[in-house]
């Protein structure tokens, strides 16, 4: 008679009934996000076409995503130039000192969450120093290692907060020209890690020379047990590897931060701008968010930790004899 009449009878009380009742809230949200994402891709293709047009600056090669990392001088006070790198440095130092002094002045026997975080950081760094340095060096260099750790960590973390610092691209609000929002970190400029690495290099060389003497220090760079003509081959390599520490310290931090920021920028929309297809920007946006989370949660801390522990290892190793 009808489709209903021909349908199989519904048997109440079967085991499948609760599953068919409805989706969980989390699953609903996930499906909605995926639907919005796919719908957005279709929307942008419908509006702008599958093959869009590149912006004139992109087509001419005038626009480059790396230009966002250029340090344009905003103003000068005598010999002192002020740019966004300096701004991020000052923000980093303000947050570092403000946070640490705030906690240090309110230390309690029963610590709060913030105090626990700071104390855990302190304890972790102190243990790291103890493991790599002897007692005297640990007492002398623990503040340096801890400062390097917290300073780079805060610099990295604030680098993931978008701030209006893109002076190459401005927008108007009530007639005022405001720089576009951008994620930037002071250590995306090679100057920041280079000066820190250079300082570490000078310090561990100084400690090595102080401990072994100039000739002894150079000899201490050689691995133990190497004798004969092979010394002529090994010695230059060891000298070079010693100087390469400076470069590896610098490049590891700088390249990681720069590459991370560029990846986030590309995935967050710039790739779509470069190819001239808005749907590509929308398509890659989730990947941009994922990379942002990965960088902010893992890379920021990891790179700060690596720089700090390598500092401890290099200083500790400089006074050891092979």
């Amino acid at each position: 008679m009808s489709a209903v009449a021909g349908a199989p009878p519904i048997t109440p009380g079967t085991g499948d009934a609760p599953e068919k009742r409805g989706m969980t809230r989390g699953r609903k949200i996930a499906y909605s996000v995926v639907a919005a994402w796919l719908g957005g891709v279709i929307f942008f293709i419908l509006i702008y076409g599958f093959k869009g047009n590149k912006a004139p600056d992109v087509a001419s090669g005038a626009f480059s995503p790396v230009d966002e990392f250029r340090l344009d001088t905003w103003f000068e006070a005598g010999p002192v130039a002020f740019n966004k790198g300096v701004l991020y440095l000052l923000i980093a130092v303000a947050i570092t000192l403000g946070l640490m002094i705030y906690v240090a002045r309110r230390l309690k026997q029963r610590p709060g969450r913030l105090q626990v975080v700071v104390e855990s950081f302190y304890d972790f760094t102190r243990n790291m120093s103890r493991e790599n340095l002897d007692t005297n060096l640990q007492r002398k260099y623990f503040p340096l290692i801890a400062t390097i750790f917290v300073f780079i960590l805060v610099s990295n973390l604030i680098g993931y907060i978008p701030l209006p610092v893109n002076s190459g691209d401005k927008f108007k609000i009530f007639g005022a020209h405001i720089p576009s929002l951008q994620i930037f970190a002071a250590d995306t400029n090679v100057a920041y890690p280079l000066i820190l690495a250079l300082s570490v290099f000078v310090l561990f060389t100084y400690e090595g020379v102080k401990h072994h003497g100039p000739i002894g220090y150079v000899k201490s760079l050689m691995p133990g047990g190497v004798k004969g003509p092979i010394v002529l081959l090994i010695f230059p390599i060891e000298i070079m590897s010693n100087f390469l520490r400076l470069i590896s310290l610098t490049v590891r931090l700088w390249a990681n931060l720069l590459a991370g920021h560029l990846l986030i920028a590309f995935m967050g929309g710039e790739l779509g701008v470069l190819v001239g297809d808005p749907w590509v920007s929308w398509l890659l946006l989730p990947f941009g968010v994922a990379i942002f989370m990965f960088e902010a949660v893992l890379i920021a801390g990891l790179q700060a930790f690596i720089f700090a522990i390598l500092t401890a290892i290099y200083i500790g190793g400089s006074v050891e004899s092979h």
Binding site: I101, R105, V118, P143, N189, A191
Partner: peptide, 27 residues
Amino acid sequence: NVGLMIWTIVVFVISLLILRRLVFPRI
């Protein structure tokens, strides 16, 4: 960027001195 290098080392040394004097001993 040489200017940023100078800013970095100055700001870092100031931070180090303040943290070494006011913060780390207390913690």
